[in-house]
Computed example of a mutant assay.
Amino acid sequence: MLDDQGRVIHIDFGFMLTNAPGRLPGGVGFENAPMKLTREVLEVIGSDSNGAPSEMFDYFKVLCIQGFLAARKQRDRIVTPVQVMARSGFPCFQGGGDRAVRALAARFAPALSEGEVVQHVLGLIGDSLDSWSTRQYDYYQRVLNGIL
């Protein structure tokens, strides 16, 4: 990540690029939901694990759509620095830098119209609702870290 002075600052790009738990090469796929949308988060925004409508959940959806559309307009400013770093050897490119860049660019759904993007984002939210893989990964982390 670059700060306002152009300096590189640390952020864990692994989840965004290639080595998220659901995408570990040769590993067990844990987390494969598009975003973390747990029962607890849903409860806070007035929904349930099935995504029952509520004013706050509808607002959450609107914000997700607006955020996706805003990021999509700036996708070149996001993808280009990643492309420059793709051959750096950083662990976040362990699955292949060029492949990681292509996958990142594709996440912006550049071929979709704005109307299609709305449906795409709603689909991502639906796929994330109280995801089984999220619950399992969170359980694994609690056990691993001695929280249970």
Rank of each mutant, 00 (worst) to 15 (best):
Met1Lys: 06
Gln5Cys: 04
Arg7Cys: 09
Ile9Asp: 12
Gly14Glu: 06
Gly14Thr: 09
Gly14Pro: 02
Asn19Gly: 07
Asn19Gln: 15
Asn19Phe: 15
Asn19Trp: 06
Asn19Met: 10
Pro21Phe: 08
Gly22Phe: 02
Pro25Cys: 13
Pro25Tyr: 00
Pro25Thr: 01
Gly26Thr: 08
Val28Gly: 02
Asn32His: 07
Ala33Gly: 03
Met35His: 09
Leu37His: 00
Arg39Phe: 12
Val41Arg: 08
Val44Leu: 07
Ile45Met: 03
Gly51Met: 09
Ala52His: 13
Pro53Ile: 15
Pro53Glu: 09
Ser54Arg: 13
Glu55His: 08
Glu55Val: 04
Glu55Cys: 11
Glu55Phe: 07
Met56His: 10
Phe57Glu: 06
Phe60Gly: 03
Phe60Lys: 10
Phe60Asn: 14
Lys61Ile: 10
Phe68Arg: 07
Phe68Val: 07
Phe68Thr: 02
Ala70Phe: 15
Ala70Asn: 13
Arg75Gly: 13
Asp76Asn: 13
Pro81Gln: 12
Gln83Ser: 14
Val84Tyr: 08
Val84Leu: 06
Arg87Asp: 11
Arg87Ser: 02
Phe90Trp: 10
Cys92Ile: 14
Gly95Tyr: 03
Asp98Trp: 11
Arg99Glu: 04
Ala100Cys: 01
Ala100Arg: 00
Leu104Lys: 02
Ala106Glu: 10
Phe108Met: 14
Ala109Arg: 12
Ala109Ile: 13
Pro110Met: 04
Ala111Pro: 04
Leu112Pro: 05
Leu112Met: 15
Ser113Leu: 01
Ser113Thr: 12
His120Val: 06
Gly123Trp: 06
Gly123Ala: 03
Gly123Ser: 01
Leu124Thr: 04
Leu124Lys: 01
Gly126Pro: 01
Asp127Gly: 04
Ser128Trp: 00
Leu129Phe: 11
Asp130Gln: 00
Asp130Lys: 01
Ser133His: 03
Ser133Gln: 05
Gln136Ala: 05
Asp138Ile: 04
Asp138Thr: 09
Tyr139Leu: 14
Arg142Lys: 10
Arg142Ile: 07
Arg142His: 06
Gly146Tyr: 00
Gly146Arg: 04
Gly146Gln: 10
